[in-house]
Design a protein around this nucleic acid. Structure first.
Lengths: 189, 189
DNA sequence: TCAGAATTGTTCGGATCCAAATCATACGGT
DNA sequence: ACCGTATGATTTGGATCCGAACAATTCTGA
């Protein structure tokens, strides 16, 4: 099982292949390992605690957000869960069909939809979260509490950087030009 | 765009909701931020350098792996790219159709398929990687080189923990019972 | 030698996922 | 009241994505 073992070598190969163009090695390693860790953690949790209750990672995250924050507008749930509004519509539909989530109209604003957990959803999360948190502790088992805080803080700064300066950065890169539309996706009727 | 701002609060809410059951806060924060950072980074890169050349994140990673390692067996590419074999088949088909990747039979083992970049694929990566690396530097812009090494090292330990002990851990959790099959997926004919 | 076990890539069912288009409602100014 | 704009959620097209089933090939041992 290669992968992580070969990052240093991969960087050298990349540098050689670029013929002397400088490479930001440390920054590249952060991005590579963020994604590698995210995949590993997600896979482990899906195949341990989530599989048994037939929940995908995304479905669990959505449940978790609603569980923690209580009845919420869908746009906030999508934001917190890190998925698009359109994706949330589908996931919420699935969860609603399984009796874990219910939707309700906003009392004053007819555009909004509120999501909340059903009793069954509440019970599921109460039972599931401790097991989930246990595995979070497992995957970080090689890190001390202080290490965890350091890593989490570093990651938080990455998230902040993208959220606060990403939009500006993208505009600068594209030079004001409209971003190329996705090749896939809906077309005008 | 809340999210990161509320993690501490979310943890308190979670603890309250669990009614005194201890929560591993630091570990929870690491997992939450790993995933948040992965989403943010992926989104930024897709919407900056990748969109213009009509590549998804996964397609780029696959190209990168083949570019760095040269002609490779598909199983190794899937492993390095962090996707399943089945997914790679589809992605490789897409990239082959766009003339960026070519496949070849293994000279001695008829089961294997080798993937390599076409000339066009080579040129694309040569042009694309510097821009990609530039954005890797941007998203980590709030971290010093030393910070980057620290964070990358911590993440590497998470990956290692899952890779080296994850399988055993899952078996222990399930108590030897066969893992529940996915609800979705192919059925016996 | 040759039948069963192992390994590899592909097919396939079902669910996600994004972003553009679209539909629906609320709000602004006149 | 009315109309244009802003802001919601949903629909839709295309591409992923996983993992089980499957087909093809190689390996193993008696």
């Amino acid at each position: 099982m290669p992968g992580h073992r070969s990052i240093a070598e991969a960087e050298k190969l990349a540098a050689a292949r670029l013929g002397g163009i400088p490479v930001r090695h440390d920054q590249m390693a952060v991005v590579a390992n963020i994604y590698r860790a995210a995949s590993a953690v997600r896979q482990h949790l899906e195949n341990s605690v989530l599989r048994g209750v037939d929940l995908t990672w995304t479905a669990f995250v959505v449940l978790w957000v609603i569980w923690i924050w209580g009845e919420s507008e869908t746009r906030h749930v999508a934001e917190e869960a890190g998925i698009s509004k359109g994706t949330l519509t589908g996931v919420a539909r699935t969860l609603e069909g399984r009796g874990l989530v219910q939707r309700a109209d906003h009392p004053t604003d007819g555009r909004l939809v509120l999501l909340s957990l059903t009793d069954e959803g509440q019970e599921l999360m109460q039972r599931l979260f401790p097991a989930f948190n246990e595995e979070e502790a497992f995957v970080t088992g090689q890190l001390s509490d202080a290490d965890c805080r350091t890593v989490a803080d570093g990651l938080r700064r990455v998230v902040l950087q993208v959220e606060e300066n990403g939009e500006q950065r993208r505009q600068d890169l594209l030079g004001g030009a409209a971003p190329a539309p996705r090749r896939s996706g809906r077309r005008k009727a």
